Amino acid sequence: MNGVDEVSPLELLRSALPGLSGAKLRVAEVIMANPDVVGRSSITWLAEQAGTSAATITRLSTSLGFDGFPELRAALAREHGRDVQAGWEKDIGSAITPDDPADKVLSILAGNQLTAARNAMASVDLEALESVADRIVAAKRVQLFAEWGDAPPAHELYLRLFRIGIPVWFGEGAYFSQVGASLLNEGDVALLVSRSGESPIAAKFVRTARDHGALTAVITGSPDSALAAAVDVAVHTGTGLGNSWTDYFAGRASDTLVGGLLWALVAQRVPDRIYERISEHDFLEPPSAKPARRKAR
């Protein structure tokens, strides 16, 4: 190579474009439009796409400082690989690579979840969570709120509370959160899940709920956040927002664990209500097990 291995081949092409014409310009345009494809294709394919000869491609490659097309193609492939890796690490994280086998991916995710669960066990204020459970049992209305990635654990908590007869509602988005908060009264509960603890919509939800006399609480990974300071009760899960999907997925385990713990604490406080509801509606008896009723004669 002629000292171009550290320089982006696409940058070299951009710089050369004003001086190119004819067949060389067509080749450059094809490369610029599909650098990843060119990086794994033959010189014959590129010649067909540009409507020119292999010799023209070779001359363009050498004019850019490469020994020939194979070296230019390799540089394009390396650059694409670096871009893919950078994008992967920014989104997914560095704990998992695109080439990791499935068993390693499973092991990493399970290990991260185990760490998050341990962090939650060390961080949760049990007295605070029990106080929230007490208020939920006594409330006439419980309003849950979460956005985007925080919504799944909040929605699961909603389903579990609803199942045991708690008057609970769940809303996403600015409109539904404000309507839900405005329906709360003294003695009710407004509970949100927010890993980051930062959200203008959630902050307005909290203000509205407090103005209506409700207890406000947040399950969060950021105990020093604005939302944690704004609510009456902040429950720390032990896992913050993180910088990638892998981090966020790990934190989901702590969010779900704390939500499940809160549900269990509520259920402990209303065991008779649970039994009565199950007995009344025969939830535990499959339809086929019910005795057939005889028609009156």
Rank of each mutant, 00 (worst) to 15 (best):
D5S: 06
E198C: 14
P70M: 04
V258Y: 03
A133Y: 08
I43W: 04
G260F: 07
L76F: 00
N34K: 14
D103W: 07
S182D: 11
V168C: 14
Q268Y: 10
L161R: 13
A292W: 04
R118S: 15
Q143I: 11
P287V: 15
G111S: 05
R59Y: 02
A122V: 08
E89H: 05
I274E: 07
R277E: 06
G39D: 02
A28Q: 03
G165F: 00
P9G: 01
P271Q: 04
L106Q: 07
L72N: 01
A133E: 10
V231E: 06
L76M: 00
H155W: 13
I166W: 10
D272H: 14
S41G: 11
S254Y: 06
V30C: 09
A28L: 02
I136D: 10
W263E: 13
L12K: 05
A190S: 12
A209P: 10
S42R: 04
Q113P: 06
V193H: 12
L20T: 02
I57N: 02
E285K: 09
K24D: 02
D211F: 06
L114H: 09
I166G: 09
T58E: 05
A226M: 03
V142L: 12
T256K: 09
A267F: 15
W169F: 08
I166E: 08
E79K: 00
E280F: 06
D150M: 05
A146Y: 13
P152H: 06
A264N: 11
A226W: 00
D224V: 03
T237C: 04
A250Q: 05
A202D: 13
G260E: 04
A139K: 08
N119T: 13
G22I: 04
R135L: 07
G51H: 00
E79F: 00
I96A: 03
A116I: 03
M121L: 12
L13V: 02
D83H: 08
A190D: 09
L215N: 11
E11H: 09
R195S: 07
A203G: 14
I31Q: 01
S131E: 15
S254G: 06
K290D: 10
A122W: 15
N2A: 12
R141P: 12
V4M: 02
D103A: 08
A138G: 14
P153G: 05
S41F: 00
E172G: 08
A23K: 08
G68Y: 01
D100K: 15
S61Y: 01
G260W: 02
E29Y: 03
A110G: 04
S94I: 05
A120G: 11
R293I: 14
A138Y: 09
Q268P: 15
L129C: 14
A102C: 04
Q143C: 13
T256N: 13
R59D: 04
G39K: 02
F283W: 10
K140W: 03
R160H: 15
K204N: 13
H281Q: 11
E186H: 15
S244C: 09
R78T: 01
D83S: 06
S244I: 07
R82W: 01
Q85D: 15
L227S: 14
L60P: 01
S288N: 14
D134T: 07
I31C: 02
P70R: 03
T52D: 00
E130F: 11
I136F: 07
R40A: 10
R297S: 08
Q49Y: 07
